[in-house]
Design a binder for these strands. Structure first.
Length: 259
DNA sequence: TTCTGATCATAA
DNA sequence: TTATGATCAGAA
């Protein structure tokens, strides 16, 4: 672990449509100058301060401050934005199955959005357990624990915008509302029931209102153990839980008072 | 244009 | 292989 100073420059919203700029810019983006450290934040307040400090920066600017090289595009480096934000906020590196900020109980998620503040992609939550989950309850599930507290960091990331010019938005801390929690629980219970009953092959991305089950693997040949239609063990494609954009869109709308 | 299934890099 | 970080890209 090391300390690094990060000076954040003022930056401006790169947007041609002046009306959209007025409508969303002040809500989604801020610009400021801060100094921050790359040690893990020791409080929620410090984490939020760091989040605000990088808001308004382009990815190239942040990469420059962190002295890391930014790839030309994400075709071969899909996780680079998330890792960049992790580094800027002082998240613990590594691929451990725990929150990015274990001591704070906070999970970090970047969220690519378009000029209207709508998510461009579904959001990966965690791998789906395909065996030995009959007695598991939602409250103890990985899905629930991961989504207990999330620091969402929107990234203005329309595909036409070069990676380097994409802008970091105003991150914010979120907890599911009672209704959101119940909706997620319902989706989760339905999906998990089907998994445990051997109906995995019939589950498509369209199942679930907000939470969906989709492949999460190196490629279509990757295999893991699952439950077959007769209850037997079979080799199948690893799956992961994802939040549909309708869900994350509502989260953003509530946070930024968008229509 | 949106959505689902497929895919890429890396660490342990 | 499974976990982390996700987006790609063709089908619908």
């Amino acid at each position: 672990m090391y300390l690094a100073k990060l000076t954040v420059h003022n930056s401006q919203w790169r947007e041609n449509d002046q009306q959209n700029q007025r409508k969303n810019a002040n809500l989604l983006w801020s610009s400021s100058t801060w100094i921050l450290a790359l040690l893990p934040p020791d409080s929620i307040e410090q984490l939020l301060a760091r989040t605000q400090a990088i808001a308004g920066l382009t990815l190239a600017e942040l990469a420059g401050q962190l002295e890391v090289k930014l790839p030309v595009d994400l075709k071969r480096d899909k996780g680079t934005v998330g890792q960049l934000i992790e580094a800027a906020l002082g998240a613990c590196a590594g691929s451990k199955a725990e929150p990015d900020f274990p001591h704070l109980g906070v999970e970090l998620k970047t969220l690519p959005i378009d000029r209207y503040g709508k998510p461009l992609e579904s959001t990966y939550v965690c791998v789906a357990p395909l065996t030995g989950t009959v007695l598991e309850q939602f409250a103890e599930s990985w899905v629930c624990r991961k989504l207990q507290r999330v620091l969402w960091v929107p990234i203005f990331a329309e595909r036409e915008i070069p990676l380097a010019e994409r802008i970091i938005g105003n991150g914010f801390l979120w907890q599911p509302s009672v209704m959101q929690y119940q909706a997620l629980q319902q989706d989760w219970e339905e999906l998990m029931e089907q998994i445990s009953l051997g109906g995995l092959d019939q589950i498509r991305g369209a199942n679930g209102k907000y939470l969906q089950l989709r492949p999460k693997a190196a490629n279509s040949k990757a295999l893991t153990t699952g439950i077959g239609s007769q209850g037997e063990a079979v080799q199948t494609l690893p799956r992961g839980f994802y939040l549909k954009t309708s869900f994350t869109s509502a989260v953003l709308a509530a946070q930024f008072n968008l229509a």
